[in-house]
Design a protein around this nucleic acid. Structure first.
Ligand SMILES: [Mn+2]
Ligand SMILES: [Mn+2]
Ligand SMILES: [Zn+2]
Ligand SMILES: [Zn+2]
Lengths: 151, 151
DNA sequence: TTATTATTTGTTAATGATTATCATTAGTTT
DNA sequence: AAACTAATGATAATCATTAACAAATAATAA
């Protein structure tokens, strides 16, 4: 944890930004809830527990900044809000998601499944891939079992 | 064109919805601009040229309805608006996109590049895939050439 | 140190996309 | 025609995000 904060601090300094207490508190929340996919509002409420004086705009600003630094990725699952997702340490590409259409659960896939596809895109479409977004919509394991039980 | 409208009409009737003049005008705009990725507002302005009396809310309602019927897919490229994209006729899955980070151009890939990946997801994650969203972010052919010329 | 300048923050107001409300219209069924 | 239902258009409401701006904080110069 401290290790990752140190690294983010360095990334900020490299662009001559500072790791202010507000920014640190925000990063800590993101680290603590790494599995989740929190909205700005969610994050704001959690940061408030650590730093009650923080303002919502600061959280938005921090998340924007962390997006620029590619510390977080901003995603949209189609409900009306943006969600912020910590990049896996050292990952070149954004990880994938499995979204259950029944229960809404979101599972992460860290393994990069798109290497072959990207090669194809670069070769056949002459498009130079920098990053990707991949989400599967379907039925999660739990819901499949639940459905089978009720039949 | 007429053929596709007929088919959409049948899909609507199958759920006992009607193809009203407003809905038809909206569908016609979507067909005429099939390559594009229009926002609700964009579509509203285009429909107004055919049917000036139409209201914005009706356009939203129609797009919502067409989404339910899977005639269109609602997507979000990260600017603040939802965009609506006609499904390719008979396609089981949503097509892919290449978004240029420099000029913003959006290219479509109709070929399904994810069959192997989906098989893997189903086998190794026990997740039953119904659909997917795949977008690549990078540099389009044109911008690559432009960049090379300037070096 | 003190004065000056640049960053960052919190509060608040503004914006802009989407949704809800509701009276009106069009279409169907008796 | 009367009664009922579905769909529409105008408008107001909602809600996430951004902008504005004065106050606080940190960095730098004098
Ligand atoms: Mn994730
Ligand atoms: Mn498309
Ligand atoms: Zn589920
Ligand atoms: Zn380009």
């Amino acid at each position: 944890m401290e290790h990752r904060i140190e690294r983010i601090k360095k990334q900020l300094h490299a662009q001559s930004y500072k790791l202010t207490p507000q920014r640190e508190a925000t990063v800590r929340v993101l680290l603590e809830r790494e599995e989740d996919h929190l909205s700005a509002e969610d994050i704001y409420l959690l940061v408030k527990e650590k730093a009650p004086e923080i303002g919502l705009a600061t959280v938005y600003r921090t998340l924007e900044l962390l997006s620029e630094l590619k510390v977080v990725d901003k995603i949209n699952f189609g409900d009306g809000v943006s969600r912020y997702d910590l990049r896996k340490e050292g990952a070149a590409h954004f990880h994938h998601h499995l979204v259950c259409m029944e229960c809404g659960a979101v599972e992460e896939i860290v393994e990069d499944l798109l290497e072959d596809v990207e090669k194809k895109i670069e070769d056949e479409w002459q498009f130079q891939v920098k990053d990707h977004r991949l989400t599967f919509h379907g039925i999660c394991r739990k819901c499949q079992q639940k459905n089978n039980a009720n039949n």
